[in-house]
Design a protein around this nucleic acid. Sequence first.
RNA 1: GUGGGAUUAGCUCAGUUGGUUAGAGCACUGGUUUGUGGUGCCGGGGGUCACGGGUUCGAGCCCCGCAUCCCACCCCA
Length: 403
Amino acid sequence: MISSLRGMNDILAEDYERFTYFITTATEIAKKYGFHFVQTPLLEETALFKRSVGESSDIVGKEMYQFIDKGENDVCLRPEGTAGVVRAFVQKKLDKAGGVHRFYYHGAMFRYERPQKGRLRQFHQFGVESFGVDSVYEDANMIMMASDILSALGIGYRLQLNSLGDQNCMPAYRESLVKFIESCEDEICEDCQRRKLTNPIRVLDCKNEKCQSLYLNAPKLLDNLCAGCQSDFDKLKTILDQNNIKYEIDTNLVRGLDYYSKTAFEFVSDNIGSQSAITGGGRYDRLVEFLDGKATPAVGFAMGIERLLELIVMPESKREGYYLGAMDDEAIDMIVTLAHQKRKDAKVNVEYKSKNLKNHLKGADKVNARFCCVVGENERNDGTIWVKDLENKAETTIKVEDF
RNA sequence: GUGGGAUUAGCUCAGUUGGUUAGAGCACUGGUUUGUGGUGCCGGGGGUCACGGGUUCGAGCCCCGCAUCCCACCCCA
């Protein structure tokens, strides 16, 4: 037997219904916020991700499905969605067009990771990206939209918030943090020594107790914001307060992708195991420029669909459509024809074997039909069909022409 | 990439110190005093015990390898 590749799952039946229910719900809400759909290729030039996500990130450093195609191009399956959308934005010259552009997307992403619950090699994200708005109201808008989507699906969450600073305050902070780390470099763990070089802010949420005790006196990101970042962050908190969105400040929250600045946020769930981040996002005002576009402020987020699936509270499934059955073989041809007509505007299940009434009712119940419709000897003689509404138990016998 | 656990029917799981023909519940399917379901009763099918080796008179059980899933790291959605 050939089975699917490690970390790559089939989605069918009940799972697929949850999947589409999520997409439908999220799409509806994104549209209400004025977003438009964008679809970008699954395969992109490798350089796109190296430049946007950043070579220092694990995603680019060791998790990409990267290969040389038959035309000798260095390509890879997209590990995330933002880079492709920004590339499309620049390629379509929307940066030069100016104005505000808001997009949502969903689709498969690929990362060569060791699978775990909530962590697959092929997984799906729903994401949104907003271009051209530098106001912190847009940051808040993003958070409210993510919150609306999760709430509409009945998903509980905690929202974690941080500001990463911008090019005025971040580099200086980074420098002072590195200086601090160097002052105790001999005592910190190997991971932290590596992080000092790749992503120094990461050391702050090291799990190692000894490291933690050393970092108590480390400079804090939020204490070192410049005036602009500070007032934006304060404003963001005020907007969220005014709209009853609860949040926790997490000064150690660092987005794993290099392009983020200022607002960073993450929605986490306590009900799905260790891969608890269900939505992550933030502002990335420099990325359009990095990808050769005209400098354009931007902010977005992405949701991990598989992580959400089991948290979704599905609406109760209602009885729907018709079940047609025959009580003797002579009636079978007739119900097949009736079903064909009825299917023009309704869902119809047909049983091809003649059975007694009890078994037909069982069958209708099993396929969750609203109406159980049966033709037996009596009905055949009268040119009628017996119909029972399985919801309110009402029974009628009607002329076949009126069915 | 590192360390640990698991893998038996479609699903969830039992299976004694290694010993006849590997079980249960649910699901599926057939019948049910011959026209009333979701909730009665009786029956039936379905397993290369993940896969490949080894030890043994004998392996679901012990040993080695391998695959996948899960957990903790790492990282992220």
